[in-house]
């Protein structure tokens, strides 16, 4: 009978043989893969399939963690480099730390949870289609250009450990034409990008974000009732067609 758990020592290992081992393990029916001594290997779980597979990453993964991934769950016990969840199809990523730029870039499904803060261009061009509804949950704050060109899905900024303005840089939601952002704290109007508009934060919205906050608290062992009770700034598209009306012929 196959072992359901496999531990791989990734010390000094190049990403290609590492991914080959991961793929082979998933094919063999391994359900939990523990990667020890990860130190900057890029593309971990890239394009990997398997709905019931969990990959535990001990160490800092390099860029494009779980890009194009379809199904598995990745748990990172460290910070992550840029673009985890890039163009991800489905599955989950939990990052016990911070993450770099372009987190969840163009993500089309699945969920990414970052315990602390993220860099620039978080959730840029996330998009939804039918049952695919991507979610990015950031525990801390973010840098500029958050949720630009968003076409669908949900982006939640909890603002823990930041002052009252968790996203204190410009370009929030520039060109957004679908999906929505919820930011706990203040969002000065001048930080909103072209095409983004504030919307009322309703009780329905609160219900909508609740499961994501629950998942966040459960994974990162956080007990802060104010995450549920505080008001969030709700941001969405001012028009579904930000580029319409620009052209003549």
């Amino acid at each position: 009978m196959t072992k359901k758990t496999l531990t791989i020592d990734a010390k000094g290992k190049h990403y290609t043989p590492l991914n080959i081992e991961i793929r082979a393990a998933v094919k063999d029916g391994v359900k939990e893969i523990i990667l020890d001594n990860i130190n900057g290997q890029r593309f971990i779980a890239n394009g990997l399939r398997g709905d019931d597979v969990t990959i535990i990453i001990n160490g800092v993964p390099g860029g494009d963690l779980a890009m194009f991934m379809s199904g598995p769950t990745c748990i990172v016990h460290a910070n992550a480099e840029h673009a985890p969840g890039n163009t991800m199809d489905s599955g989950k990523i939990f990052i016990h730390g911070t993450a770099g730029d372009a987190v969840a870039h163009s993500m089309r499904g699945g969920e990414v949870y970052v315990r602390d803060s993220i860099g620039y261009r978080g959730g840029i061009h996330m998009k939804a289609y039918k049952e695919k509804y991507p979610a990015l949950v950031v525990g801390g704050g973010t840098r500029a250009f958050l949720g630009e060109y968003m076409a669908g899905g949900i982006l939640l900024v909890l603002g823990r450990g930041t002052d009252t303005i968790p996203v204190d840089e410009r370009g929030i939601g520039t060109g957004i034409h679908g999906g929505e952002l919820f930011i706990r704290g203040e969002v000065p109007d001048h930080l909103l990008g072209i095409g983004a508009a504030k919307k009322p934060f309703t009780e329905d919205d609160r219900e909508k974000i609740r499961p994501y906050i629950e998942n966040y608290c459960r994974e990162f062992d956080v007990d802060e009732p104010e995450l549920f009770s505080d008001d969030y700034v709700h941001i969405g598209p001012s028009s579904a067609r930000p580029f319409a009306g620009k052209y003549c012929w």
């Binding site: 494009d64 840029h82 673009a83 890039n86 372009a102 870039h105 163009s106 089309r108 261009r121 840029i124 061009h125 998009k127 939804a128 289609y129 695919k132 630009e148 060109y149 076409a151 669908g152 060109g175 034409h177 679908g178 579904a240 067609r241 930000p242 580029f243 319409a244």
Partner: peptide
């Protein structure tokens, strides 16, 4: 087209100027 591009019916499909990654 919506099925093939995996975007909602009658929504604009916007390709940004650069790849943001």
């Amino acid at each position: 087209v919506s099925k093939t591009r995996m975007i909602p019916l009658y929504s604009d499909a916007i390709s940004p100027a650069p790849h943001h990654d």
